[in-house]
């Protein structure tokens, strides 16, 4: 049983790492995310890091593309803010932003970028934290707590990150100059959406069957 549990935990850890890496890759290239990419193996995460590594161009092109997509100063080609997709496409710092920030603060963290709280990197990192907390709970044998973590992750994805990741990805694919950001769009979208679906299935199963958490976590391995 504990072997299975260990496997499950490892799989969850992989989920967590995936979110973390994605968060880092949406940041400006100089922020250190690219180093993370270098250090990650396929086994660590649930996305195709190899593909991403291959798609990385020279530094300058990368920076330029990142800026054009996500930073501006004027028209953002792929605005990385939830508010734009959920509230008003011309507005940042909306109620959606406030709601997300409230979620962070209620959980005991806060945005640490010079950006609105609903920046994609922050939302990805927050999800990472939620999964990392789940992992700790599993490690400690606190399964009820771990279940709650799963619920929390699902709530966050369905209320926030999951709602707009595909539109963001579409903008990225349409406007990216480099293959890297196109690839990132693909990987991010498919991972997040799949993860969301999987969470929904797990929670449904926990709710309607007698299966315990360990059993439900099956199927979380690398796809």
């Amino acid at each position: 049983m504990s072997d299975t549990l260990d496997d499950r935990i490892a799989a969850e850890r992989q989920r967590a790492e995936t979110y973390r890496l994605l968060a880092a890759l949406f940041q400006p290239p100089d922020a250190g995310g690219m180093d993370g990419l270098e250090a990650t193996t396929d086994a660590d995460v649930s996305i195709a890091v190899g593909r991403l590594r291959e798609a990385v161009p020279d530094r300058d092109s990368l920076k330029l593309d990142h800026a054009g997509l996500f930073v501006g100063p004027f028209d953002l080609l792929a605005p990385p803010y939830e508010s734009v997709y959920v509230d008003d496409e011309t507005r940042v710092m909306t109620e959606a932003t406030e709601r997300v920030r409230t979620e962070y603060r209620e959980a005991g963290v806060d945005i640490d970028l010079d950006e609105p709280a609903d920046h994609v990197a922050a939302e990805l990192e927050f999800t990472y934290l939620l999964v990392a907390t789940e992992v700790e709970a599993l490690d400690a044998g606190a399964f009820e707590a771990a279940e709650r973590c799963l619920e929390r992750q699902y709530e966050f994805l369905s209320a926030h990150l999951g709602r707009w990741i595909s539109e963001l990805a579409e903008n990225m694919r349409e406007h990216a100059d480099t293959a890297f950001y196109s690839a990132l769009a693909d990987e991010a979208r498919s991972f997040v959406e799949a993860d969301g679906r999987r969470l929904a299935e797990r929670l449904e199963r926990l709710d309607s069957t007698d299966d315990d958490l360990v059993a439900v976590l099956e199927g979380g391995e690398n796809r």
Binding site: P73, R91, M93, E95, T97, E98, P116
Partner: peptide, 24 residues
């Protein structure tokens, strides 16, 4: 004011209040 704020320090917030984040 919020529309023209380059850093979104001024932004619409809870309750429809035009908020100002002075750190931004």
């Amino acid at each position: 004011c919020a529309e023209g704020c380059p850093t979104s320090a001024l932004h619409k917030g809870k309750g429809g209040i035009t908020m100002h984040d002075h750190e931004t």
